[in-house]
């Protein structure tokens, strides 16, 4: 589903964020991408949904090398990859419903479909009661749920989550992870970037460890530390 081959990423500032990454993530896998802050987790995810391009190497998503993808094709790539952003990236002046519906609107879906699918996604994340609220009226955990609803509303085969528990208390973090696990069980490949040790250890999933831009460990049923 996702395959990185000899991927290097050096930002224009000269910082080597990723160094010779080789990684294969299969269909419907659940993978934790762990590493301390600045290790290159966000950069790796950005390469997958083409917010950034690798300096060299191949990033193949669903048989397409997105590193070489034409700019006009990027929107269609992104409709197949749900992304849960660390800072949520919700549209501030739109309601919860509108935020989720927006990911469907861009596909040109008819109004009735938009309404039905958005409500389904909001139901799945348990936010049906807050459809008319604005982002600033929500708690961190609630924003995260809306963000997840928006990410999955198109039924993408891939879901990327960047530090989804970054600003949440342990109980809420746990709820969010349960939700991501549920989505994974509905045939979605899920990649979660995190430095939340207790959650990684508890979930017993595949763990890929980054350190200073290098992939140093890749382990099934892994723990945060060896």
């Amino acid at each position: 589903m996702i395959e990185l081959t000899n991927v290097f990423k050096t930002y224009s500032s000269g910082i080597e964020s990723l160094y010779d990454i080789n990684l294969h993530i299969g269909k419907e896998e659940f993978v934790f991408l762990v590493g301390s802050s600045g290790a290159g987790k966000t950069t790796l995810l950005k390469l997958v949904y083409r917010e950034e391009r690798p300096t060299s190497g191949k990033v193949v998503v669903d048989r397409v090398n997105v590193a070489e993808l034409d700019a006009s094709q990027i929107p269609f790539l992104r409709r197949n990859i749900g992304v849960v952003f660390q800072d949520f990236k919700l549209l501030a002046k739109r309601t919860v419903f509108e935020n989720v519906a927006f990911a469907l609107r861009v596909t040109g879906a008819p109004r009735s479909t938009i309404r039905r699918k958005a409500m389904q996604a909001l139901e799945l994340v348990g936010m049906l009661r807050r459809v008319n609220s604005f982002p600033h009226e929500l708690s961190g955990g609630e924003k995260q749920r809306v963000c997840i609803a928006r990410a999955i509303v198109n039924n993408p085969p891939i879901l990327l989550a960047d530090e989804p528990t970054g600003n949440l208390d342990p109980a809420t973090s746990w709820d969010i992870l349960q939700l991501l696990d549920k989505i994974n069980k509905r045939n979605t490949t899920v990649v979660v970037a995190t430095h939340n040790k207790s959650i990684v250890d508890e979930m017993k999933k595949r763990v890929v460890v980054l350190e200073n831009g290098r992939l140093v460990r890749d382990q099934q049923l892994g723990m945060y530390h060896v």
């Binding site: 929107p75 992104r78 409709r79 992304v83 990236k89 549209l91 990911a103 928006r150």
Partner: peptide, 16 residues
């Protein structure tokens, strides 16, 4: 501008 950036991230085309 932030809105435009977010719209593009969730798959909006330029013309949209």
């Amino acid at each position: 501008e932030t809105d435009l950036y977010i719209m593009k991230l969730v798959g909006a085309t330029n013309s949209f």
